[in-house]
Design a protein around this nucleic acid. Structure first.
Length: 283
DNA sequence: CAACCGCCCTGGGTGC
DNA sequence: TGCACCCAGGGCGGTT
């Protein structure tokens, strides 16, 4: 649920609050939150103690902090993951999963995750096209905020798929960072129905769709991200306010901001797609 | 090989 | 008041 803008808000918070600090102690309260760290929770903690958090990075919805020596601590927020910077002694959050305490006795870093779809792991960093990436991120495409993002290549990748356009937009190996919210917003902006087959999508229209996705995610980032229920927050626990600017996602029954027709919700991959029945004609 | 389906998980909300 | 049920959904492993 946190998509590119929300994850970037968190990355900036980590950059400002934990970069350059040395970990003194790590507590894992729920094994599921480190399930992707195959050697287990004790190994996870042991690998982090004494290490300096060097630089906070992001690709798509993946977030990591370089540790030096070719390793990084990798985070995926899943649906409900939060990274909170809290003064020592602050009461534990109900869904606190991992705590990192620093050698400087300053604020702790806490991983809080109600639904435990997210998680942390220590990963080896490998070079992919000249960019250092944790191994599980190696197959993830560049996102539209990446300075080296190639829009023409992304358009070609989208159009090579033989599927519905929204499925392609959500495929993180084609373009990363887009989830259900910004997919629906981008499709609304580009006046495309989610079920349009990619082989019936002109290069120009695909380019328009990607531009729309980029624009809406940048606007959301400027607003501090999208929040519905205080599940996505920055490292200080504050919500963004982009939800006020959503045109389609979650707006069932409300007027389309462009034409006034009520937004409809349709089942899509065991979830929902929101669209305007007039602006986004079903193929 | 590409496309697609089902599963993982929790708690807030809703309807009876 | 309480209980059963629904819903949110990214990523991955298994199947077609």
């Amino acid at each position: 649920m946190p998509e590119l803008p929300e994850v970037e808000v968190v990355r900036r918070g980590l950059q400002n609050h934990v970069e350059g600090r040395v970990i003194a102690r790590v507590e894992v309260f729920h094994p599921r939150s480190v399930r992707r760290h195959l050697p287990g929770a004790a190994d996870f903690a042991g690998r982090l103690v004494g290490r300096e958090l060097v630089a906070a990075r992001r690709r798509g919805k993946y977030l990591w902090v370089e540790l030096g020596s070719g390793e990084a601590v990798l985070a995926h927020l899943g649906m409900s993951g939060q990274m909170l910077v809290q003064p020592p002694g602050t009461p534990d959050e109900k869904h606190l999963r991992v705590r990192m305490v620093f050698a400087d006795d300053g604020p702790e870093l806490r991983f809080v995750d109600q639904r435990t779809f997210g998680g942390l792991s220590v990963e080896e960093v490998v070079e992919v096209d000249g960019v250092p990436l944790p191994v599980p991120v190696a197959h993830i495409a560049r996102d539209p905020m990446d300075p080296a993002f190639d829009p023409a290549a992304a358009v070609a990748a989208l159009r090579r798929k033989r599927t519905e356009v929204k499925r392609a937009l959500l495929d993180q190996t084609l373009v990363s960072g887009i989830g259900n919210i910004y997919a629906d917003e981008a499709l609304w902006r580009a006046r495309l129905h989610w079920a349009r087959p990619t082989d019936r999508l002109s290069a120009a229209k695909a380019g328009e769709l990607l531009s729309a996705a980029t624009d809406v995610m940048r606007a959301a980032l400027d607003a501090g991200g999208t929040s519905f229920d205080a599940l996505y927050v920055n490292v200080n626990g504050q919500s963004g306010y982009f939800d006020r600017s959503l045109a389609a996602y979650g707006q069932e029954g409300l007027p389309c901001p462009r034409c006034g027709r009520p937004i409809v919700r349709e089942p899509f991959m065991n979830r929902s797609s929101f669209s305007c029945p007039r602006c986004q004609r079903h193929p």
